[in-house]
Design a binder for these strands. Structure first.
Ligand SMILES: Nc1ncnc2c1ncn2[C@@H]1O[C@H](COP(=O)(O)OP(=O)(O)OP(=O)(O)O)[C@@H](O)[C@H]1O
Length: 738
DNA sequence: CAAGCCATGGTTTTT
DNA sequence: CCATGGCTTG
């Protein structure tokens, strides 16, 4: 065991106070870079030094990467061979472990499959079809949104109308789809991401499981508490109900996942939940220089409904940040390359430079330009590998082997690669399954008894034999590497993609076959790291991989990542691109003040990742999905204290891009004369071709202006919202100057 | 039944 | 711009 002094070394008074707090609820409320994560890590060490059994400690982080880093740091606080260490993981992963262990008590088999959004999307689509035509104005995507919102707020299908603010006429269809969706999950023996949390909550309501979990875990620590959702909040309370040893850390200004149900209220109401909670504030920042902090602070001050925080850097003033005005995305990418070159000349490592933006798609040009200039980089998109078609195919085989009830997976692979089991044959199988009341896989196994399969019958039988052979292999015990190799060959996936690559004549590194090989490597890693793992566990690990988890720390490459993925990280130098209206804040968020505030927090998070040097870029033009468009600097740039900005005439940003609003008085324009010759009429400033900004619909171009009754109306093509007809005196419109 | 072609439409962030 | 789906042809 390590000496207490070492654990408490390099901590400020308040940090130490939090670290040495033993029993009872504790909240560490502090700004960016103030050492919250360090507090959690040291506190785990301190608890252990005070004789707490490490295996009774649970620490929840936001990402697997953060968990791995914390585990590594905590490792030094442990006796070399002292049994189990603390559980350090994300909410989702921790829940999966508990469900595998205790799921039986709530009727959950331990080989359940985790469905990702693409799987659940398929289910919801089918569910929509089953239920009949969708109500007007509803799309599958919107239904998905409603269901996911309902689940994260723990609203059941029959409670939609009372608990969710939905138009009444949509409710019957939606609750039927939702109920059907839940049934299908059960049929597939699958859980979606929300279920992982919800079912664990069920565990905590089941005496046997609850007691076992409570006996095992005595101390709970949750990092990034500001981004927990309702279910996670209830889980945290449930896990710690017996001891009330619950330590939460977070920063309300860094809450950026409201869009998927995170409730900032969890952290704001902590003291109400636990009136006896000890609250520690940290006011020193050890990460960034004062100019960077000041920029961040001046920005975030524009959010209403927040408590102001004091945060002082211990690193001095530092350099001012720079705002770069670029012509278009190519120019922007060139400037980024130039900044990286200069940094490299100054002796900065590539890996200490991050390029961030709001949406991954904006990295295309930057990536190309970095490649062209020989600058090494890595894109933080771990999931993209697992979303490749060939990898999803392979994973689907593994999923069905582990859980034959996984019909979504089975439907994907039954004719992939094509093996003569077409739509017709599949319909016959499905029909058989339905009439016999068995799962789809069972129908496949019974193919020899289904003559109506016709010519396909023999193909189905052969497929069934192949799958059963693989299943037997697993039952007899096999490494994941071996299983993956066998699956790739037995399924003919390798053959199929090999042939296709030959035809397409693509460069090798990106080829599907190479990806399949890489997946073998993934399996090898798993075998090495989890010698007594299982197929189910292997698949689950992969289902919970996160973008940022795949970023390699030990390679000297520039990191490209979204600001969401940057949560909790830090870099010497940060370059944020496309700080433009309709990108940041994103077009989808315009017109909703809460969402705009979250966008502001997002930029705040991006800015506060920088230790010493910060650059913000915007482009005047950008081509998005084919068309070349004019863009405007983000409103957020104007909010940053000019005192901390260098190198650019900040007034260029404050120069109004929007002409102030005017209203046509309906009375005065009350003539019936048709008005098509618009320029002649001084009463109406709007003309076809003008760019306008609408509070709700965002930016658009006026197509036509006409008089209707006593009002001028206009038809406006909005970039996002599409063509709308609006009454000019009433609609909240601004003219935008180009 | 397979494969390739064209039209359509949707269009963030992610556990 | 991209992915998906429907249609046609082999
Ligand atoms: N007392 C201290 N002395 C020196 N450095 C410290 C101290 N506390 C924290 N740091 C350093 O400050 C940096 C930020 O710490 P940490 O990541 O724990 O902050 P945080 O509050 O979790 O930040 P954020 O909320 O922005 O993710 C780290 O590099 C950490 O090592």
């Amino acid at each position: 065991m390590i000496a207490e002094e070492q654990i408490l070394a390099d901590l400020t008074g308040p940090q130490r106070e939090a670290v040495t707090h033993m029993e009872g609820p504790l909240l560490v409320l502090a700004g960016a870079g103030s050492g919250k994560t360090r507090v959690i890590t040291r506190r785990i060490g301190y608890l252990i030094s005070q004789g707490v059994d490490p295996s009774t400690i649970v620490a929840i982080t936001f990402t697997n990467k953060a968990a791995a880093e914390m585990a590594q740091r905590v490792h030094q606080f442990l006796d070399s061979e002292s049994g189990f260490g603390p559980a350090i993981s994300t909410f989702h992963k921790f829940c999966v472990q508990l469900l595998r262990m205790y799921g039986k008590t709530i009727g959950l088999e331990s080989n359940f499959t985790i469905f990702d959004t693409s799987d659940t999307g398929k289910l919801i689509k089918t569910a929509c079809g089953d239920v009949g035509a969708l109500p007007a104005g509803m799309t599958v995507g919107k239904v998905e949104g409603v269901i996911s919102r309902a689940k994260s707020q723990m609203v059941r299908p029959d409670e939609l109308s009372s608990k969710l603010d939905l138009p009444q006429y949509l409710v019957p269809a939606l609750s039927r789809i939702y109920a059907r969706y839940e049934d299908m999950l059960r049929e597939n023996k699958a859980l979606d991401f929300d279920d992982l949390l919800l079912k664990t909550l069920d565990l905590l309501n089941e005496p046997f499981a609850r007691d076992a979990i409570h006996r095992r875990y005595q101390y709970l620590l949750v990092d990034e508490y500001q981004d927990t959702n309702r279910v996670q909040y209830l889980l945290a309370k449930g896990f710690s109900a017996h001891t009330r040893n619950f330590c939460a850390t977070g920063d309300p200004d860094q809450s950026i996942y409201g869009w998927r149900g995170a409730e900032i209220g969890n952290i704001l109401d902590f003291e109400k939940d636990f009136p006896d909670a000890k609250v520690v504030y940290l006011e020193n920042n050890y990460r960034s220089t004062n100019h960077i902090l000041n920029a961040a602070d001046s920005l975030i001050k524009n959010n209403k409904q927040r408590k102001d925080k004091k945060l002082i850097s211990v690193l001095g003033q530092g350099e001012k940040l720079k705002i770069h005005s670029c012509e278009d995305e190519n120019d922007e990418a060139r400037q980024v390359v130039e900044l990286i070159r200069q940094a490299k000349l100054k002796g900065r490592a590539y890996s200490q430079i991050a390029v961030m933006c709001r949406v991954n798609s904006l990295f295309r040009t930057v990536e190309q330009t970095l490649r062209d200039n020989g600058i090494p980089y890595q894109l933080a998109r771990g999931v993209s590998f697992f979303q490749r078609k060939e990898i999803r195919d392979l994973m689907s085989y593994l999923r069905v082997i582990a859980n034959p009830a996984d019909t979504v997976g089975l439907e994907r692979i039954i004719n992939m690669p094509t093996r003569g089991i077409g739509a017709q044959a599949q319909a016959v199988l499905k029909d058989y399954a339905r009439t016999q009341g068995v799962i789809f896989y069972e129908a496949v196994l019974n193919a020899d008894r289904i003559p109506s399969l016709g010519k396909s019958q023999v193909n189905v039988i052969r497929f069934a034999e192949m799958m059963e052979r693989l299943r037997k292999t697993v039952a007899n015990g096999v490494t994941m590497e071996e299983l993956v190799r066998q699956t790739i060959d037995a399924s003919s996936l390798r053959n199929y993609y090999q042939k296709r690559s030959e035809k397409d004549n693509r460069p090798d590194e990106l080829s599907p076959v190479a990806n399949l090989e890489e997946f073998v490597g993934t399996a090898q890693n798993y075998d090495r790291e989890a010698p007594d793992g299982s197929l189910t566990d292997f698949i689950a690990q992969l289902s919970l991989v996160n973008d940022i988890d795949a970023v390699e720390d030990d390679s000297d490459r520039v990191v490209l990542l979204t600001m969401h993925a940057a949560k909790g990280l830090e870099f010497e130098q940060v370059v944020i691109i496309a700080v433009e209206e309709e990108i940041l804040p994103h077009a989808m968020c315009l017109g909703n003040d809460n969402q705009i505030e979250e966008e502001r927090r997002l930029l705040f998070v991006g800015i506060t990742r920088a230790k010493r040097e910060l650059h913000l870029c915007f482009s005047h033009h950008r081509s998005t999905r084919g068309s070349y468009r004019q863009n405007f600097p983000s409103r957020f740039l104007k909010e940053i204290d000019p005192q901390s900005v260098e190198g650019m005439d900040v007034s260029e940003l404050t120069r109004p891009t929007r002409v102030s609003q005017f209203v046509i008085s309906p009375r005065k324009s009350a003539d019936t004369e048709a008005v098509t010759a618009l320029p002649a009429r001084p009463k109406c400033q709007y003309r076809p071709g003008q760019r306008v900004y609408h509070q709700k619909f965002g930016y658009g171009v006026i197509q036509e202006v006409y008089l209707s009754g006593t009002n001028y109306n206009a038809s406006i093509q909005f970039n996002i919202a599409g063509l709308k007809k609006l009454v000019l005196g009433i609609a909240p419109l601004h003219i935008v100057q180009s």
